[in-house]
Design a protein around this nucleic acid. Structure first.
Lengths: 189, 189
DNA sequence: CACAGTATGTACTAATTGGTACAATTGATC
DNA sequence: GATCAATTGTACCAATTAGTACATACTGTG
């Protein structure tokens, strides 16, 4: 009876979208099978650990994506300011101008924060640290760099909350611009 | 067999804490009865509409709390800067220095955003608007006031996300200070 | 084409879900 | 102390939950 043969990685991508729109607790297996077109057979074959393992796989994929497109450039790109510009571009595209939610942020606000503590903490800690190192590379003094990087990550997460609430992607775009300006402003202590 | 007679308002307070720690979807009736010490009888007597009505009541209570302690002072307090100081004090206390989550913010990131759209949108819109009017009253020009108020509410919400993730209330406190300074800075365009 | 292992749908649990019905108990008021 | 509405525990319901078992079908390798 099996019709199409899928791959685990496709499943992870689909699962990410499901978790993002329904939340962890709101994502029942029936929702998953409906949205991913995968039967229980495939699901438990790919993820014997059930929902927990699915969420872990999703978080891992998200972590890899940000590592490749955002964190690593922040650390390695010789032109520090270009890396920051790139970060904002990638963030804007990834979150679809605020119409898409940050799953890690959503997990952070729920009890998932405990269950997936390692991944959630890792995501935000490396983001702040890598941005900080980039700012130092761009010539900022250390304490200011720490403050600015924390402020930027906080701003992005907060903007996602507010953009969803007020329902305008304008809020998100406006905030990204404001944050970018603050990070790249060279003529200020 | 009923032992103690409770009031609806007590139930709402208990429910708020349950929703905050378990999320809307994660809050099952069994969790509610366990944490609130209220049987199904009382629960459905107070909230015939079930979980939805409970959440609405909680959101209403939160809205009232912020209206009284934060929004109204922002609008009415003659000393605009004092109102802003008070806002940060109340916010810090309410969110227990970042150890407590903003239920409205958490709802905003989930599908509850659609179900309770009115309340979620109302909470954030009035917060931003009232803070904006307060800043104008404090002498800021209109466009800057709009930007600053949006930035502050975003910063608070983002700080809650990050504080939970990294697990330090220090992040929250530091952010509140930074935001307050930004709002009260008089010597800048 | 045969074979192996990987996928997959179906049927089945046992437990939990939100919700209803109702009789019993409470506490304030007369 | 009788009365009555407000409150509450218990028993119950149908639906859904996560998860298991397994026989069957697909697919790449030889």
């Amino acid at each position: 009876m099996p019709r199409v043969v899928s791959e685990r990685s496709d499943a992870v991508t689909a699962l990410a979208e499901v978790f993002r729109t329904h939340g962890f607790e709101g994502t029942s297996l029936s929702v998953i099978t409906a949205k991913t077109k995968l039967g229980k057979g495939s699901l438990y074959h790919f993820f014997p650990g059930g929902k927990d393992e699915m969420a872990e796989a999703v978080l891992e994929e998200i972590g890899r994506w940000f590592e490749d497109r955002v964190f690593k450039p922040l650390r390695d790109e010789p032109d520090a300011e270009a890396a920051i510009e790139k970060m904002f571009e990638e963030v804007d595209r990834y979150f679809r101008s605020g119409r898409r939610v940050c799953l890690v942020g959503a997990f952070a606000l729920g009890q998932e924060c405990d269950r997936f503590e390692r991944q959630v903490r890792g995501y935000f800690e490396t983001w702040v640290m890598d941005l900080e190192s980039c700012l130092i590379r761009a010539g900022r003094n250390e304490t200011l760099a720490r403050d600015l990087s924390e402020d930027a990550v906080i701003g992005i997460q907060g903007a996602l909350v507010l953009a969803r609430s007020i329902g305008q992607s304008a809020v998100f775009e406006r905030t990204l611009l404001r944050l970018k300006k603050r990070l790249l402003e060279r003529d200020h202590p």
